[in-house]
């Protein structure tokens, strides 16, 4: 049958795409466990040496600490902002609502390098550049639209009578928010937290411009690569990749899992 042949073709096609996307990462993983200094084949022996090196590197530790602080703070701030905007869109009708939403969704469409330059100019003008806070603020602006899109999608699935039902049963607007809106959006909120954290954890351009002396993990990676050929970069890369993937997969599983459940 034609369907069968098509299925095989599509399967190969998808396989090829995955190979294309993940092969470099796989290589990085393989070489991070390889004793040879240069990434060549044949491989040397299996070793954890590069991991031990970064484990003992105070610079890397400081960068990881910075990255964790920045990405977790960004996640909370961006998700809060995203939730508020999504709710304002769900609840209210007002003039210029179209432009309002378009403006909110704008940041990810701006080239990162331009965004980074603008952030640097602006933050240094108001005396906020060169601190960890600067990165958190900039990343929040950058990632809030993703949080808003996820939460908005969830709110659209909600029966609009639910909130009114909470008022009708004696709940004030704040109580309705706490006991109905937030629990209903919980899966989207958790997903948004994971996703924004992942984006922030990976982000390089903006961090590099506004961070000053506070290096995050991607900045440290660049410095290592700039200096010389050092296999520790493969070890760090693998670590960053696994962290981000875990967060993104978590976000997907939580959001889609709940969606399937509420549709069955």
């Amino acid at each position: 049958m034609m369907g069968r042949g098509l299925n095989i073709f599509l399967g190969l096609y998808v396989g090829l795409i995955f190979a294309f996307v993940f092969a470099p990462i796989l290589f990085s993983l393989v070489f991070s466990l390889n004793s040879q200094r240069f990434p060549t084949i044949p491989l040397g022996e299996f070793t954890l040496e590069w991991y031990v090196q970064i484990w003992n590197d105070e610079d890397v530790w400081q960068a990881v600490r910075n990255s964790v602080i920045v990405s977790s703070s960004t996640a909370v701030l961006a998700t809060f902002l995203g939730f508020c905007t999504a709710y304002s869109d769900f609840r209210y009708n007002f003039r210029f609502k179209g432009p309002y939403l378009a403006l909110i969704l704008l940041p990810p469409t701006i080239p990162l390098i331009i965004m980074a330059l603008a952030m640097l100019a602006w933050l240094s003008r108001i005396g906020l550049s060169g601190q960890l806070w600067s990165i958190i603020l900039a990343h929040s602006v950058l990632t809030a639209p993703f949080a808003m899109a996820l939460i908005r999608l969830r709110l659209h699935q909600m029966d609009p009578d639910l909130e009114a039902a909470a008022w009708n049963l004696g709940g004030s607007e704040w109580q309705a928010m706490r006991h109905v809106i937030v629990p209903f959006c919980a899966p989207a909120i958790v997903s948004a937290l994971c996703l924004t954290a992942a984006i922030s954890f990976d982000e390089f351009a903006v961090s590099w411009f506004v961070s000053g002396l506070n290096k995050t993990v991607p900045i440290v990676i660049l410095e290592i690569v700039q200096g010389n050929i050092d296999p520790t970069v493969n070890a760090i890369g693998t670590f960053v990749f696994l962290t981000s993937m875990t967060l993104v997969i978590l976000a997907q599983v939580i959001f889609i899992g709940r969606q399937i459940k509420s549709h069955s």
Binding site: A164, A165, F184
Partner: peptide, 9 residues
Amino acid sequence: WQSLALFPF
């Protein structure tokens, strides 16, 4: 409510 508006969670 016509939609019943039960809290699904």
